[in-house]
Simulated assay, not measured.
Amino acid sequence: MSNSHPLRPYTAVGEIDHVHILSDHVGVLMNGEEYSDVTFIVEKKRFPAHRVILAARCQYFRALLYGGMRESQPEAEIPLQDTTAEAFTMLLKYIYTGRATLRDEKEEVLLDFLSLAHKYGFPELEDSTSEYLCTILNIQNVCMTYDVASLYLLPKLTCMCCMFMDRNAQEVLSSEGFLSLSKPALLSIVLRDSFAAPEKDIFQALMNWCKHNPKENHAEIMQAVRLPLMSLTELLNVVRPSGLLSPDAILDAIKVRSESRDMDLNYRGMLIPGENIATMKYGAQVVKGELKAALLDGDTQNYDLDHGFSRHPIDDDCRSGIEIKLGQPSIINHIRILLWDRDSRSYSYYIEVSMDELDWIRVIDHSKYLCRSWQKLYFPARVCRMEEKTP
Protein backbone atom coordinates (compact mmCIF):
# COMPACT_ATOMS: atom_id res chain seq x y z
CA MET A 1 0.00 0.00 0.00
CA SER A 2 1.58 3.27 -1.12
CA ASN A 3 1.26 6.61 0.59
CA SER A 4 1.84 9.68 -1.61
CA HIS A 5 3.51 12.64 0.04
CA PRO A 6 3.18 16.26 -1.13
CA LEU A 7 6.75 17.20 -0.18
CA ARG A 8 9.46 17.28 -2.81
CA PRO A 9 12.36 14.83 -2.48
CA TYR A 10 15.53 15.83 -0.67
CA THR A 11 18.06 17.62 -2.84
CA ALA A 12 20.89 15.78 -1.09
CA VAL A 13 21.36 13.42 1.80
CA GLY A 14 20.73 15.37 4.99
CA GLU A 15 19.38 18.42 3.16
CA ILE A 16 15.72 19.48 3.15
CA ASP A 17 14.40 21.90 0.52
CA HIS A 18 10.83 23.04 1.18
CA VAL A 19 11.22 26.54 -0.24
CA HIS A 20 8.06 26.08 -2.31
CA ILE A 21 6.06 25.53 0.88
CA LEU A 22 7.51 28.66 2.43
CA SER A 23 6.62 30.62 -0.72
CA ASP A 24 3.05 29.30 -0.67
CA HIS A 25 2.53 30.10 3.01
CA VAL A 26 3.94 33.62 2.77
CA GLY A 27 2.01 34.17 -0.47
CA VAL A 28 -1.27 33.55 1.38
CA LEU A 29 -0.64 36.77 3.33
CA MET A 30 -0.60 38.91 0.17
CA ASN A 31 -3.53 41.35 -0.05
CA GLY A 32 -4.87 40.06 3.24
CA GLU A 33 -5.96 42.47 5.97
CA GLU A 34 -4.90 40.00 8.68
CA TYR A 35 -1.61 41.00 10.32
CA SER A 36 -1.08 43.81 7.78
CA ASP A 37 0.41 47.01 9.14
CA VAL A 38 0.76 49.18 6.03
CA THR A 39 -1.50 49.93 3.05
CA PHE A 40 -0.48 51.21 -0.34
CA ILE A 41 -2.90 53.27 -2.43
CA VAL A 42 -2.44 52.82 -6.17
CA GLU A 43 -5.02 54.25 -8.60
CA LYS A 44 -7.52 54.44 -5.72
CA LYS A 45 -7.05 50.73 -4.98
CA ARG A 46 -5.90 49.58 -1.54
CA PHE A 47 -3.09 47.04 -1.13
CA PRO A 48 -2.63 45.86 2.47
CA ALA A 49 0.89 44.60 3.15
CA HIS A 50 3.33 43.63 5.87
CA ARG A 51 6.26 45.86 6.69
CA VAL A 52 8.61 43.13 7.80
CA ILE A 53 8.16 41.13 4.58
CA LEU A 54 8.62 44.17 2.38
CA ALA A 55 11.67 45.31 4.33
CA ALA A 56 13.24 41.85 4.21
CA ARG A 57 12.84 41.65 0.44
CA CYS A 58 13.64 45.19 -0.64
CA GLN A 59 16.10 47.87 0.44
CA TYR A 60 13.81 50.59 -0.92
CA PHE A 61 10.89 49.51 1.28
CA ARG A 62 13.24 49.02 4.23
CA ALA A 63 14.24 52.67 4.01
CA LEU A 64 10.69 53.81 3.33
CA LEU A 65 9.01 51.88 6.13
CA TYR A 66 11.68 51.86 8.84
CA GLY A 67 13.64 54.95 7.92
CA GLY A 68 11.33 57.86 7.19
CA MET A 69 8.30 56.54 9.12
CA ARG A 70 7.94 55.80 12.82
CA GLU A 71 8.27 52.09 13.48
CA SER A 72 5.76 52.33 16.30
CA GLN A 73 3.04 53.60 14.01
CA PRO A 74 0.50 50.73 13.89
CA GLU A 75 -1.06 51.58 10.51
CA ALA A 76 -0.01 53.77 7.61
CA GLU A 77 -1.36 54.55 4.18
CA ILE A 78 1.18 55.30 1.48
CA PRO A 79 0.05 56.60 -1.94
CA LEU A 80 2.15 55.55 -4.95
CA GLN A 81 1.86 57.79 -8.01
CA ASP A 82 4.39 56.26 -10.40
CA THR A 83 2.76 52.94 -11.25
CA THR A 84 -0.44 51.17 -12.17
CA ALA A 85 -2.49 48.82 -10.04
CA GLU A 86 -1.80 45.92 -12.41
CA ALA A 87 1.97 46.33 -12.26
CA PHE A 88 1.98 46.83 -8.49
CA THR A 89 -0.10 43.66 -8.05
CA MET A 90 2.55 41.74 -10.01
CA LEU A 91 5.32 43.26 -7.90
CA LEU A 92 3.63 42.33 -4.62
CA LYS A 93 3.15 38.77 -5.86
CA TYR A 94 6.85 38.59 -6.67
CA ILE A 95 7.83 40.04 -3.28
CA TYR A 96 5.65 37.57 -1.38
CA THR A 97 6.20 34.45 -3.51
CA GLY A 98 9.21 34.98 -5.77
CA ARG A 99 6.96 34.29 -8.76
CA ALA A 100 5.59 36.39 -11.61
CA THR A 101 3.54 35.52 -14.70
CA LEU A 102 4.44 37.66 -17.69
CA ARG A 103 2.97 35.92 -20.71
CA ASP A 104 -0.65 37.05 -20.24
CA GLU A 105 0.07 40.72 -19.53
CA LYS A 106 -0.10 43.65 -21.96
CA GLU A 107 3.16 45.29 -22.99
CA GLU A 108 2.26 48.51 -21.15
CA VAL A 109 1.83 46.61 -17.88
CA LEU A 110 5.08 44.71 -18.42
CA LEU A 111 6.98 47.95 -18.96
CA ASP A 112 5.47 49.43 -15.78
CA PHE A 113 6.48 46.23 -14.01
CA LEU A 114 10.00 46.56 -15.39
CA SER A 115 10.10 50.15 -14.14
CA LEU A 116 9.12 49.02 -10.65
CA ALA A 117 11.76 46.28 -10.66
CA HIS A 118 14.35 48.92 -11.56
CA LYS A 119 13.15 51.53 -9.07
CA TYR A 120 12.78 49.17 -6.12
CA GLY A 121 16.05 47.35 -6.74
CA PHE A 122 15.23 43.84 -7.98
CA PRO A 123 18.03 43.22 -10.53
CA GLU A 124 17.18 39.55 -11.11
CA LEU A 125 13.55 40.47 -11.79
CA GLU A 126 14.70 43.28 -14.06
CA ASP A 127 16.87 40.87 -16.08
CA SER A 128 14.17 38.20 -16.37
CA THR A 129 11.54 40.71 -17.47
CA SER A 130 13.95 42.21 -20.01
CA GLU A 131 14.68 38.78 -21.46
CA TYR A 132 10.97 38.10 -21.88
CA LEU A 133 10.38 41.47 -23.55
CA CYS A 134 13.10 40.58 -26.07
CA THR A 135 10.98 37.65 -27.22
CA ILE A 136 7.78 39.63 -27.86
CA LEU A 137 9.10 42.65 -29.76
CA ASN A 138 6.89 43.82 -32.63
CA ILE A 139 6.23 46.98 -34.61
CA GLN A 140 3.61 48.18 -32.12
CA ASN A 141 5.68 47.83 -28.94
CA VAL A 142 9.33 48.19 -29.95
CA CYS A 143 9.46 51.99 -29.63
CA MET A 144 8.04 52.20 -26.12
CA THR A 145 10.16 49.21 -25.09
CA TYR A 146 13.28 50.93 -26.41
CA ASP A 147 12.36 54.12 -24.58
CA VAL A 148 12.24 52.28 -21.24
CA ALA A 149 15.30 50.12 -21.96
CA SER A 150 17.46 53.13 -22.85
CA LEU A 151 16.17 55.11 -19.86
CA TYR A 152 17.19 52.34 -17.43
CA LEU A 153 20.39 51.44 -19.31
CA LEU A 154 19.41 47.82 -19.99
CA PRO A 155 22.02 46.78 -22.58
CA LYS A 156 20.59 43.52 -23.87
CA LEU A 157 17.04 44.82 -24.27
CA THR A 158 18.32 48.05 -25.84
CA CYS A 159 20.43 46.09 -28.33
CA MET A 160 17.56 43.78 -29.28
CA CYS A 161 15.26 46.76 -29.85
CA CYS A 162 17.88 48.43 -32.05
CA MET A 163 18.36 45.30 -34.15
CA PHE A 164 14.60 44.93 -34.57
CA MET A 165 14.16 48.58 -35.57
CA ASP A 166 17.07 48.43 -38.00
CA ARG A 167 15.53 45.49 -39.84
CA ASN A 168 12.06 47.07 -39.89
CA ALA A 169 12.97 50.74 -40.17
CA GLN A 170 10.22 51.92 -42.53
CA GLU A 171 7.46 50.14 -40.60
CA VAL A 172 8.78 51.61 -37.33
CA LEU A 173 8.73 55.13 -38.81
CA SER A 174 5.03 54.83 -39.65
CA SER A 175 4.01 53.24 -36.32
CA GLU A 176 2.07 55.07 -33.62
CA GLY A 177 4.75 54.23 -31.08
CA PHE A 178 7.30 56.32 -33.02
CA LEU A 179 5.28 59.47 -32.30
CA SER A 180 5.42 58.81 -28.56
CA LEU A 181 9.19 58.36 -28.28
CA SER A 182 11.04 60.66 -25.93
CA LYS A 183 13.40 63.09 -27.64
CA PRO A 184 16.61 61.34 -26.45
CA ALA A 185 15.33 57.96 -27.63
CA LEU A 186 14.15 59.41 -30.95
CA LEU A 187 17.53 61.00 -31.70
CA SER A 188 19.50 57.92 -30.68
CA ILE A 189 17.45 55.86 -33.16
CA VAL A 190 17.59 58.09 -36.25
CA LEU A 191 21.23 59.13 -35.79
CA ARG A 192 22.47 55.57 -36.22
CA ASP A 193 24.00 54.65 -39.59
CA SER A 194 22.25 51.29 -39.37
CA PHE A 195 18.75 52.81 -39.27
CA ALA A 196 18.51 52.33 -43.00
CA ALA A 197 15.30 53.88 -44.24
CA PRO A 198 15.08 56.33 -47.16
CA GLU A 199 15.93 59.83 -45.95
CA LYS A 200 12.64 61.19 -47.26
CA ASP A 201 10.75 58.75 -45.04
CA ILE A 202 12.88 59.68 -42.03
CA PHE A 203 12.24 63.38 -42.65
CA GLN A 204 8.48 62.91 -42.91
CA ALA A 205 8.39 60.75 -39.77
CA LEU A 206 10.34 63.39 -37.83
CA MET A 207 8.00 66.07 -39.18
CA ASN A 208 5.03 64.08 -37.85
CA TRP A 209 6.82 63.64 -34.51
CA CYS A 210 7.32 67.41 -34.28
CA LYS A 211 3.60 67.99 -34.88
CA HIS A 212 2.82 65.45 -32.17
CA ASN A 213 5.31 67.04 -29.75
CA PRO A 214 4.93 70.81 -30.32
CA LYS A 215 6.81 71.84 -27.16
CA GLU A 216 10.10 70.21 -28.18
CA ASN A 217 12.99 71.91 -29.96
CA HIS A 218 12.21 71.06 -33.58
CA ALA A 219 15.45 72.51 -34.93
CA GLU A 220 17.45 70.02 -32.85
CA ILE A 221 15.31 67.15 -34.13
CA MET A 222 15.72 68.17 -37.77
CA GLN A 223 19.50 68.19 -37.45
CA ALA A 224 19.27 64.38 -37.47
CA VAL A 225 18.09 64.42 -41.10
CA ARG A 226 20.88 63.76 -43.62
CA LEU A 227 19.75 66.29 -46.21
CA PRO A 228 22.53 65.57 -48.76
CA LEU A 229 21.11 62.06 -49.14
CA MET A 230 17.85 63.49 -50.51
CA SER A 231 17.29 64.29 -54.16
CA LEU A 232 16.89 67.84 -55.40
CA THR A 233 13.19 67.16 -56.04
CA GLU A 234 12.69 65.94 -52.47
CA LEU A 235 14.54 68.93 -51.02
CA LEU A 236 12.46 71.42 -52.99
CA ASN A 237 9.04 69.72 -52.90
CA VAL A 238 9.08 67.98 -49.51
CA VAL A 239 11.57 69.66 -47.18
CA ARG A 240 11.19 73.29 -48.27
CA PRO A 241 7.35 73.51 -47.91
CA SER A 242 7.53 72.11 -44.36
CA GLY A 243 9.23 75.24 -43.04
CA LEU A 244 11.18 73.15 -40.55
CA LEU A 245 14.54 73.84 -42.16
CA SER A 246 15.92 77.15 -43.34
CA PRO A 247 16.57 77.89 -47.02
CA ASP A 248 20.29 78.10 -46.18
CA ALA A 249 20.24 74.57 -44.76
CA ILE A 250 18.64 73.29 -47.97
CA LEU A 251 21.13 75.18 -50.15
CA ASP A 252 24.03 73.83 -48.08
CA ALA A 253 22.73 70.29 -48.61
CA ILE A 254 22.54 70.86 -52.38
CA LYS A 255 26.08 72.21 -52.35
CA VAL A 256 27.39 69.18 -50.39
CA ARG A 257 25.58 66.77 -52.70
CA SER A 258 26.95 68.39 -55.86
CA GLU A 259 30.54 68.90 -54.69
CA SER A 260 31.24 65.73 -52.70
CA ARG A 261 32.40 62.33 -53.85
CA ASP A 262 29.52 59.91 -53.71
CA MET A 263 31.38 57.61 -51.30
CA ASP A 264 32.02 60.55 -48.95
CA LEU A 265 28.30 61.07 -48.33
CA ASN A 266 27.06 59.86 -44.95
CA TYR A 267 24.99 56.95 -46.23
CA ARG A 268 22.83 54.67 -44.11
CA GLY A 269 23.05 50.91 -44.51
CA MET A 270 21.65 47.67 -43.17
CA LEU A 271 23.76 46.05 -40.44
CA ILE A 272 23.45 42.27 -40.05
CA PRO A 273 26.26 41.18 -37.69
CA GLY A 274 27.83 37.76 -38.10
CA GLU A 275 26.04 36.79 -41.33
CA ASN A 276 27.16 36.52 -44.93
CA ILE A 277 25.10 39.13 -46.78
CA ALA A 278 26.66 38.34 -50.19
CA THR A 279 24.17 35.52 -50.74
CA MET A 280 20.95 35.06 -52.66
CA LYS A 281 19.16 34.89 -49.30
CA TYR A 282 19.80 38.63 -48.90
CA GLY A 283 19.19 39.48 -52.55
CA ALA A 284 22.83 39.68 -53.68
CA GLN A 285 23.79 38.97 -57.28
CA VAL A 286 26.98 38.60 -59.29
CA VAL A 287 27.15 41.40 -61.87
CA LYS A 288 30.50 40.39 -63.35
CA GLY A 289 31.99 36.92 -63.23
CA GLU A 290 31.18 33.48 -64.56
CA LEU A 291 29.20 30.72 -62.79
CA LYS A 292 27.45 33.46 -60.87
CA ALA A 293 25.25 31.33 -58.63
CA ALA A 294 28.18 29.35 -57.26
CA LEU A 295 29.61 32.40 -55.55
CA LEU A 296 26.36 33.05 -53.69
CA ASP A 297 25.29 29.55 -52.66
CA GLY A 298 27.44 29.49 -49.49
CA ASP A 299 29.15 26.20 -50.38
CA THR A 300 32.91 26.65 -50.00
CA GLN A 301 33.76 22.95 -49.82
CA ASN A 302 32.72 21.43 -53.14
CA TYR A 303 34.64 22.91 -56.06
CA ASP A 304 36.96 21.61 -58.79
CA LEU A 305 38.04 22.64 -62.29
CA ASP A 306 34.50 22.47 -63.64
CA HIS A 307 32.11 23.74 -60.97
CA GLY A 308 31.59 25.30 -57.55
CA PHE A 309 33.33 28.66 -58.01
CA SER A 310 33.08 31.95 -59.85
CA ARG A 311 35.86 33.13 -62.12
CA HIS A 312 36.77 35.95 -64.50
CA PRO A 313 39.28 36.52 -67.29
CA ILE A 314 42.48 38.39 -66.48
CA ASP A 315 42.89 41.32 -68.89
CA ASP A 316 46.01 43.30 -69.64
CA ASP A 317 44.60 46.44 -68.04
CA CYS A 318 43.61 44.49 -64.87
CA ARG A 319 40.12 46.02 -64.86
CA SER A 320 38.19 42.81 -65.12
CA GLY A 321 37.08 41.23 -61.91
CA ILE A 322 34.23 39.71 -59.94
CA GLU A 323 31.61 42.32 -59.08
CA ILE A 324 28.84 41.69 -56.56
CA LYS A 325 25.75 43.82 -56.05
CA LEU A 326 24.32 43.49 -52.56
CA GLY A 327 20.58 43.31 -52.04
CA GLN A 328 20.58 46.68 -50.29
CA PRO A 329 23.08 49.26 -49.03
CA SER A 330 24.87 47.56 -46.14
CA ILE A 331 27.47 48.32 -43.50
CA ILE A 332 30.43 45.97 -43.87
CA ASN A 333 33.92 45.79 -42.38
CA HIS A 334 34.89 42.19 -43.12
CA ILE A 335 35.18 40.13 -46.28
CA ARG A 336 36.25 36.48 -46.58
CA ILE A 337 37.28 35.20 -49.98
CA LEU A 338 38.63 31.81 -51.03
CA LEU A 339 41.22 31.98 -53.77
CA TRP A 340 41.61 28.97 -56.04
CA ASP A 341 43.94 26.56 -54.19
CA ARG A 342 43.68 23.27 -56.11
CA ASP A 343 47.17 23.88 -57.53
CA SER A 344 50.25 25.89 -56.57
CA ARG A 345 49.31 29.20 -58.17
CA SER A 346 49.21 32.42 -56.13
CA TYR A 347 47.25 35.61 -56.75
CA SER A 348 47.45 39.35 -56.22
CA TYR A 349 44.25 41.38 -55.95
CA TYR A 350 42.53 44.43 -54.56
CA ILE A 351 38.95 45.03 -53.39
CA GLU A 352 36.89 48.15 -53.97
CA VAL A 353 33.43 49.13 -52.78
CA SER A 354 30.88 51.57 -54.18
CA MET A 355 27.31 52.78 -53.82
CA ASP A 356 26.66 53.77 -57.43
CA GLU A 357 29.11 51.66 -59.48
CA LEU A 358 30.85 54.88 -60.51
CA ASP A 359 32.74 56.10 -57.45
CA TRP A 360 34.89 53.30 -56.03
CA ILE A 361 36.88 53.24 -52.77
CA ARG A 362 39.70 50.72 -52.40
CA VAL A 363 39.43 49.04 -48.99
CA ILE A 364 41.95 46.19 -49.51
CA ASP A 365 45.10 46.35 -51.64
CA HIS A 366 47.05 43.12 -51.95
CA SER A 367 48.20 43.88 -55.48
CA LYS A 368 51.85 43.56 -54.43
CA TYR A 369 51.44 40.32 -52.48
CA LEU A 370 51.19 36.68 -53.49
CA CYS A 371 48.13 35.19 -51.82
CA ARG A 372 46.54 31.74 -51.65
CA SER A 373 43.51 30.03 -50.13
CA TRP A 374 41.31 31.79 -47.53
CA GLN A 375 41.63 35.56 -47.17
CA LYS A 376 40.13 37.08 -44.01
CA LEU A 377 40.05 40.81 -44.62
CA TYR A 378 39.13 43.60 -42.22
CA PHE A 379 38.83 47.32 -42.93
CA PRO A 380 37.05 50.39 -41.44
CA ALA A 381 33.28 49.94 -41.59
CA ARG A 382 31.66 51.38 -44.72
CA VAL A 383 28.21 51.58 -46.26
CA CYS A 384 28.28 50.12 -49.76
CA ARG A 385 26.11 48.43 -52.37
CA MET A 386 28.75 47.08 -54.75
CA GLU A 387 31.91 45.04 -54.19
CA GLU A 388 34.56 44.27 -56.77
CA LYS A 389 37.59 41.99 -56.58
CA THR A 390 40.17 42.63 -59.27
CA PRO A 391 43.33 40.58 -59.94
Rank of each mutant, 00 (worst) to 15 (best):
L7Y: 13
R8A: 13
P9C: 02
Y10M: 12
T11V: 13
H18I: 11
H18W: 09
D24T: 08
G27W: 08
N31L: 15
F40D: 11
I41W: 07
K45W: 03
P48E: 13
A49N: 09
E75F: 15
A85L: 07
A85R: 06
K93N: 12
T97Y: 07
R99Y: 05
A100W: 11
H118E: 15
G121K: 02
I136N: 01
T158H: 09
C162E: 14
N168C: 02
L181A: 00
K183A: 09
L187K: 02
S188A: 13
R192T: 01
F195D: 13
P198K: 05
K200C: 14
S231N: 05
P241S: 00
L245D: 04
I254C: 14
K255L: 10
K255H: 10
M263P: 04
D264M: 06
G269V: 07
G274T: 05
N276T: 01
Q285R: 12
K288E: 12
E290T: 03
L295E: 04
D299A: 06
N302S: 10
P313V: 04
C318K: 15
Q328G: 00
I332A: 12
R345G: 07
S354C: 08
D356G: 03
L370I: 07
S373D: 15
L377V: 01
F379R: 02
P380T: 05
V383S: 14
E387A: 14
